[in-house]
Simulated assay, not measured.
Amino acid sequence: MTRIDDTFARLSSEGKKAFVAYVMAGDPDYATSLELVKGLPGAGVDIIELGLPFTDPMADGPTIQLAGQRALEAGMTLQRTLELATEFRKGDDTTPIVLMGYYNPIYNRGVETFLRDARAAGIDGLIVVDLPPEEDSELCIPAQDAGLNFIRLATPTTDDKRLPKVLQNTSGFVYYVSITGITGSAEAEAGDVGPEVARIKAATDLPVIVGFGINSPEKSEAIASVANGAVVGSAIVKRIGEGQATDEVLAFVKTLADGAHRA
């Protein structure tokens, strides 16, 4: 059982849906980012998705691309991202952290070294958007052997033929991408998402969490009502990019979390 499994078991026993928040590690700088991440659980966040800055983030829209650029320009690296997680763990040993990013920085560090260091830093799961199931031997299976969940993305174009392949080595939860395209590019609609979530849930016992296109408390509630929870990233990152104070950003996050928890 990982912290992710424990969190979903607890939420299920409470009859609640999950709220997952994405922030880019090191945006706009290490100290501000650490302060924000430390404040997320108090704002109602059940699982933290921590973005790993990368120079070529092909799945991300302009908002998160700019966040990655800010972080990189401030000196953020994979090593510093793991250090941030380590600092967070000194005060919180229960909130799951999912590291979300691309394979290149992990490959450059070396998979075995990375997995050892990620475990030591308190990382619970990985979302690596550019590794398809056909490459499971690269990272997915070693990660699960090391005790980390490997969370796969399903999309509106994942048909019934492809879905079993996507699910075969997934653990923790399934991340359903509610729209086609990049992050922040459109709004999710519960009427479209609900049947897709039901289709995925018919094929797996894992929780299904929906992300992309959720930007308000109302949308968070609507999407969580047809899934096991909601993920918000771009709408939070946008406020960081605008220079809002940490307490302002966390106040906004709380409204989103409250929405998901009402569902």
Rank of each mutant, 00 (worst) to 15 (best):
A235S: 14
L139A: 09
L126N: 03
V129M: 10
S13C: 02
M76C: 11
V208C: 10
S33C: 14
T204A: 10
R262M: 08
I4P: 02
G51N: 03
L72I: 15
A18T: 08
F252W: 10
R10D: 12
V232E: 01
A21V: 02
L256V: 06
M58T: 14
E49D: 10
A121N: 11
L148C: 06
I200F: 10
A18I: 09
E35C: 00
D27C: 12
E189G: 01
I127E: 02
Q244P: 00
A121I: 08
I4S: 01
G125L: 07
P105S: 13
D159W: 09
T55M: 07
D159E: 04
D159Q: 08
E138I: 05
E248T: 13
V177G: 01
P142E: 10
I97F: 13
D27R: 11
G211A: 08
A59P: 00
Y103F: 15
V23K: 09
A188E: 04
M100H: 05
I182G: 00
E14H: 13
L163G: 04
L84V: 02
I64D: 02
Y103L: 13
Y175V: 06
G61F: 09
V193Q: 03
D205Y: 02
A154Q: 03
I214L: 04
A190V: 05
R239Y: 00
A224T: 11
F114Y: 14
A251V: 01
R3M: 03
A118N: 11
Y103R: 01
P156T: 07
G122M: 12
L167E: 02
A230G: 06
A21D: 02
I209H: 01
A263V: 12
A154S: 14
A235D: 04
L66E: 15
L40C: 04
L50W: 07
L84R: 05
E187P: 00
D247A: 12
A202C: 02
I223C: 03
A59C: 06
K201A: 12
L40A: 05
V253L: 09
P195G: 09
Y103K: 02
F114W: 10
D6F: 01
M1F: 06
A43I: 03
Q65D: 04
V253H: 06
L115K: 11
I200Q: 05
S185P: 00
L99M: 15
K238H: 13
Y30H: 14
E196L: 12
L66T: 14
T63H: 02
A85L: 02
G184Y: 08
T255G: 03
L148F: 06
D5Q: 14
V197Y: 09
P62Q: 12
G110T: 06
M76T: 13
L36T: 13
A121Q: 11
E135K: 13
G241W: 01
T113M: 00
L256F: 11
A251T: 08
P41W: 12
K17N: 13
A25Y: 09
P142M: 11
A202N: 13
D93V: 07
T155M: 13
E189D: 14
I236V: 15
R199L: 06
F19R: 05
D145R: 15
L50C: 07
L148E: 03
I4A: 03
V37K: 03
G15R: 11
S216N: 05
E134K: 12
F114C: 12
A230C: 09
K90W: 06
G172R: 11
L163N: 08
T180M: 14
A143R: 09
D159P: 07
Q144P: 00
A118L: 12
G75P: 07
